[in-house]
Design a protein around this nucleic acid. Structure first.
Length: 110
DNA sequence: TTGCTGACCGACG
DNA sequence: CCGTCGGCCAGCA
């Protein structure tokens, strides 16, 4: 059984639009737990046990670096998924990261 | 219970 | 640009 925090993380991740990306820290800050970005990463790590299919490839670190690529089975899968959405990746780094960045604090404000 | 570890982040030198 | 440190907190040995 997952903690409520985990479900909240999954909810936000599932709302990331096609072709957009966000960061672990941005999600943590949106959930009111600024500084707990590592818990977001932990939630993603546990997400493979979840039934729901999450666009986990749309979550990267604050620099647009594909730090979670190792958890997609084979290295290169995450990059491939992003490129299939029109996001260019070079050296594990998203090109024009700021142009694709999706900030839940702004996009999900009620 | 203690002490790491980690798909992170910001600050500091 | 680089390494390091403190904060964060859920698992695990």
């Amino acid at each position: 059984m997952s903690h409520s925090f985990f479900q909240s993380v999954y909810a936000v991740v599932s709302l990331i639009p096609f072709g957009r990306v966000t960061s672990y820290g941005a999600i943590a800050e949106y959930l009111g737990t600024r500084g707990s970005a590592r818990m977001v990463g932990w939630a993603m790590n546990a997400s493979h046990t979840e039934v729901i299919n999450l666009p986990a490839h749309r979550v990267v670190n604050r620099n647009g670096l594909l730090t979670g690529k190792r958890h997609f089975g084979a290295p290169g899968i995450m990059e491939q998924l992003l490129k299939s959405e029109g996001i260019d990746v070079k050296e594990d780094q998203i090109v024009d990261f700021d142009k694709h960045f999706w900030n839940p604090l702004i996009e999900l404000r009620s």
